[in-house]
Design a protein around this nucleic acid. Structure first.
Length: 270
DNA sequence: CCATATGTTACTCG
DNA sequence: ACGAGTAACATATG
């Protein structure tokens, strides 16, 4: 579920809720398959650590604990909730971090695809391409890297080692805004078209962050931020999930590219 | 019951 | 080395 926009929303909401400088006084782990060490080892390492900073790189949410990083990838259905002391554990609450502010940070994940790790360093992030919201994401290097690739453009946009942050929803949105067919090959994009795509990626992501993320559907698996409130960007999508093109009103095509459903308008995206 | 799902990774084959 | 295709992770939703 969560792409760069949703993880950024969670990060911003955590900071707004004064989680920074809180101390983790205890952790309850109900699903060991989500963590990268034994339960005891994990708890021992993290206990009494202060949250010095909260970062987001690509789709990773990272808590800087001073000499240690807590890294969280939400995958399809991971959520972070911030609750009061009186909150009682519900189904799919797999990890509960108790903070010295009397709050509980809950890791909720119906499908348990997520991963939560303690790491001494962040070198694992080296495999990621430039983060869309970072300075490293600039047109010059984007175009240079793009020219070397031979996958369909949609597949490339989903490749986190090419650009970090886009998922299926925003890749569809960016291609629609740039009027590019998702099956186009990078070699078929001239510099002007590539520039349009680069700009569109930034526009789509910034708009969605303003809207607090995209929450499709109504269930609890669907995206919500730390207060369980849904985002609003699903009301502003251009092409993803749509049946009719908002511009020319023709039928939206639905095809699979790399096993992922891709929505596009054959008429508007050449 | 069936199809589908916002993510990633490991593996195979060409 | 690269790209395409597949399965796996485990569950909810319509």
């Amino acid at each position: 579920m969560p792409e760069i926009v949703e993880v950024e929303t969670i990060k911003n909401d955590l900071i707004k809720s004064d989680v920074l400088s809180n101390k983790i006084i205890n952790v309850e782990i109900f699903a060991t398959s989500l963590i990268n060490s034994s339960k005891d080892d994990f708890i021992k390492k993290i206990k009494n650590k202060e949250i010095k900073d909260i970062l987001r790189i690509g789709k990773y949410l990272i808590f800087d604990l001073g000499d240690l990083y807590l890294t969280i990838h939400l995958k399809m259905t991971g959520h972070i909730f911030l609750k009061n002391k009186t909150y009682h554990r519900k189904k799919h609450d797999h990890i509960i971090f108790h903070l010295d502010s009397n709050k509980k940070l809950i890791y909720f994940d119906p499908r348990r695809f997520g991963s939560i790790s303690l790491k001494k360093e962040l070198s694992f992030l080296d495999k990621l391409g430039p983060d869309i919201l970072s300075k490293k994401f600039n047109f010059k290097s984007f175009y240079k890297d793009l020219k070397l690739k031979k996958q369909k453009i949609k597949a490339l946009l989903l490749d986190q080692s090419f650009i970090a942050g886009l998922g299926n929803i925003y890749a569809d949105e960016a291609l629609f805004l740039a009027k590019i067919n998702p099956e186009k090959l990078p070699s078929q994009l001239n510099p002007k078209k590539a520039q349009e795509l680069f700009n569109s990626i930034k526009i789509v992501i910034k708009k969605a962050i303003k809207n607090g993320g995209t929450s499709l559907g109504t269930g609890r698996s669907n995206f919500s931020s730390i207060d369980e409130v849904f985002g609003l960007n699903q009301n502003h999508l251009l092409i993803h999930t749509k049946k009719t093109c908002p511009k020319c009103k023709r039928d939206v095509k639905k095809i699979k590219i790399n096993q992922r459903t891709s929505h596009f308008c054959k008429n508007c995206q050449k």
